[in-house]
Structures are given as structure tokens and as C-alpha cells.
Simulated scan of single mutants.
Amino acid sequence: MQQVIYILGIVLIVYVLISILLYFLQDYFLFKPEKLSKDFQFYYENQETEEYNIETRDGATINGLRFKAKDPKGVVFYLKGNSKSIKGWGKFAVDFTRHGYDVIMVDYRGFGKSTGRRTQKAVKRDMQVVYNKIKDNVSEKYIILYGRSLGSGFATKLASMNNPRMLILDAPYYSLSKVAKKFIPFMPLSLLIKFPMPTYKWLKYVNCPIHIIHGTDDKLIPYKTSVKLSRIKPKSTTLHTVIGGGHKNLNTFESYHQMLTEIVNSRPRKVDLVGSSIHVQHSSKPTNAKV
């Protein structure tokens, strides 16, 4: 009996130590930032950019870029994934500038030239500050929120608190807690994770059109995640499927660009259901109809 208690004690100690390590090292596993020097010069071929810095109330600096379109018809606020910096992510701005949209990209705290202690609350606050700056110059009916992977949660939170033209989610997660549980199912993540990012909760309060794009072969965030998210606000959500698409390669599929073209150039319109089969029901009961 004493041996059993001893073994259980050792197991408990190891479990607690692993929990402590996960708590303090999760930033290392979740974020893969690329840091840039203050004098780094951004350059993108055939793209006109403007760099800016926003000072936050707690003394941090949020660095970002505006990619300019000729005679812009709106602005896309692009919230990127968890790796690198806008130095590399900037190449995706062309997918919107070619359709006549300016693109705003920023680096989260600790990425690129941005500074400050990174917490879920701080990043959410930073993104709202940036959104407010955009809103000062552009009516919300011309603002599109685009969230990619990690950025999908922040984009959803912004959309739930504001009134953009639309929300586009690229390979979104139900919550980061759910993603983490897939890899470490035996840990008490509800207590440990600093960035739970409950996208599914925030999505309930989004009132604009929602477009979700996901690849069927995504190994990190399964396609079924987007199917589940699309059921939260079914009347205002459209799920776009990239057959064979993974987590990082959707931009290499022609179908992705076709979807994006249709999404950003679409205008919401009410469907006339008069004369449609919407209220027609199949019946298993025999009828008196003669053949």
C-alpha cells in the first residue's frame, strides 16, 4: 500500500511540474515571433506602403503597415497568424489591393517592431485601438475584418464589438483551448492556458455577414471546426470549402482566390423566396395521385 501511495505521489509531483512548465512556457509554443530592428525598411514589389506606430496607454508600441490601393473602395483589417512578422505576411496584401481595397496589417506585441507585454486582454485592446483609428477615417460599412488562424479569434472579437461590413475567417479555431487539448488532453487547460480565445462565444454577437474559409486537409485545425462554427450563426454565415487545402497553403489554390474575389466584391441582398420550395416538405405517406 505504501508503495502505491509513493508512486501516486511521484505521479502527482510530475503532473504538477508539467503543469507549471506549460503555464510559463506556453508563449514559446503558441507564438513564433520574428523581431525587427527599429530601422528596418519594409519593401514589397509593386506595392505602395505607409508605416505607422501607435502608442498604447500602457506604453507599448504597435507597429503596422497600410498597403495602398488606387482609388480604394474600402479597407481590409488583416489580422495575421502566430508566426513571423508583417515583413513576411505583407505579401498577402496583394490579394485585396488588386480588388481595390487598402490593407492594414499590424504586428502583435513582441512581433516585428511592436513592443509590450503580450496578454490576451492587451492584444484585444490593441486591436480595438487600431480599429478605432481606421474608423476615424473610413465608415464602418467599408471595413472588412479578415482573421487568419490565430488572428481569426481577435477578428471575431472585434466584429462582435463593432459593425464592420463583413467578417472573413481563414482557418479559424473553435477556441485555442480546444486546439491545445488535442495535443495535451490530460492537462487542466482551462486553468493553465493564458490565451483561451473562445471564438465560438464571440461569434454569437457578430451581426455582420460572416464568411468562413477552410481547407479539407487542415491537420492543425480540422475542417470540422469551421463546420461547427458555421452553425452558430447559420443565417448570416457562409462556409467556403477549399478541397485539398491545408493550414498554410490556401493561397496556392485557385479556388481560394475565386472565393475571395466573390466575397470581397459581393453586396448583401435579400433573397426573394416567393415561388421557391422553401416550405415544400417531402412526405412518406402515399398520395392519391394517378400516374
Score class of each variant (00 low, 15 high):
226 S>W: 02
161 M>E: 14
154 F>W: 11
206 V>K: 02
232 I>W: 03
211 H>G: 01
204 K>A: 12
154 F>R: 13
196 P>Q: 13
167 L>M: 05
185 P>K: 08
189 L>F: 07
155 A>P: 07
195 F>H: 14
191 L>P: 06
179 V>Y: 02
195 F>W: 15
221 I>Q: 02
215 G>P: 04
159 A>M: 00
174 Y>L: 11
166 M>E: 09
214 H>K: 06
180 A>M: 10
169 L>A: 05
213 I>V: 10
220 L>W: 02
209 P>V: 04
230 S>R: 02
224 K>C: 07
168 I>P: 03
194 K>P: 00
219 K>H: 15
216 T>P: 11
214 H>M: 05
196 P>C: 10
169 L>E: 04
153 G>V: 03
191 L>K: 12
177 S>N: 12
184 I>K: 06
192 L>M: 08
204 K>C: 08
175 S>Y: 07
174 Y>T: 10
243 I>Q: 13
181 K>E: 14
164 P>F: 02
245 G>H: 03
209 P>L: 04
222 P>V: 04
181 K>Q: 15
228 K>Y: 13
217 D>I: 10
183 F>K: 11
216 T>E: 07
237 T>P: 10
243 I>S: 14
245 G>S: 04
215 G>T: 04
172 P>E: 05
199 T>N: 08
175 S>N: 09
194 K>M: 12
237 T>L: 01
239 L>W: 05
178 K>L: 11
155 A>D: 04
213 I>G: 01
184 I>E: 13
190 S>M: 09
232 I>C: 02
237 T>M: 00
217 D>Y: 14
240 H>Y: 12
